[in-house]
């Protein structure tokens, strides 16, 4: 049976590129904010580019802030999506969905902000899903980062070590953009779809 992949569309950023990446892998992703459609999907991708408080506001309007933490299928948060799955973000002092038990803070001015470009990730646990990708560089672009916590499964260094990826139960989050990280990124998306 064909896999049903829901890409949560809440009006935040460039979600087309995720859809295109899935197409390249031979899958189709449905852009949707419909709760029934999201609940019945085999996999859910929670993207996000942009500013945290306005993204959170949009989630609340459609009730997705309540829905997302209750999902049972594999959910992958990307970039801002991942950050919103944490407890809190310093960006406009915004409360998150509280799935990952960590906080999102701003990079210090000792480095250029945003952290933009290709950086390598170190995996904390060899058994983790995306470690099955060949190690490599991922594309990052962000000004805030999730502090390392129990649920951190990969780290990246930019002035300090931070969470490049998080996992708790069926919830996964990556700070980098797998849909924009060449073949290595595509492998990570494939691994997620194979969960």
């Amino acid at each position: 049976m064909k896999m049903k992949i829901a890409i949560i569309d809440y009006g935040a950023g460039n979600i087309k590129s995720i859809q295109f990446a899935l197409n390249r892998l031979g899958f189709e992703g449905i852009l949707t904010n419909n709760p029934n459609e999201i609940c019945s999907a085999d996999k859910v991708i929670f993207p996000g580019v942009g500013e945290a408080s306005s993204a959170m506001k949009k989630l609340k309007i459609s009730g997705l802030d309540k829905l997302i933490p209750t999902l049972k299928q594999p959910v992958l948060g990307i970039c801002l999506g991942m950050q919103l799955m944490c407890n809190h973000t310093e960006e406009s002092d915004t409360k998150g969905l509280g799935i990952f038990d960590t906080n999102v803070v701003q990079f210090s001015n000792l480095v250029k902000v945003p952290h933009m470009g290709w950086n390598d990730i170190k995996t904390a646990d060899e058994e983790q899903f995306f470690c099955r990708a060949s190690t490599g560089f991922m594309y990052f672009v962000h000004s805030f980062y999730a502090e390392i916590c129990q649920e951190t499964i990969a780290t990246t260094h930019y002035l300090t070590d931070f969470s490049a990826a998080l996992q708790k139960d069926n919830f996964y989050g990556v700070q980098f953009h797998p849909e924009k990280s060449g073949m290595v990124g595509e492998q990570i998306l494939k691994n997620f779809l194979n969960l």
């Binding site: 950023g13 460039n14 580019v49 942009g50 500013e51 801002l80 945003p114 933009m116 672009v141 962000h142 000004s143």
Partner: peptide, 8 residues
């Protein structure tokens, strides 16, 4: 920047 984030 306000609408789509400074990263873009």
């Amino acid at each position: 920047s306000k609408n789509f984030g400074s990263q873009c």
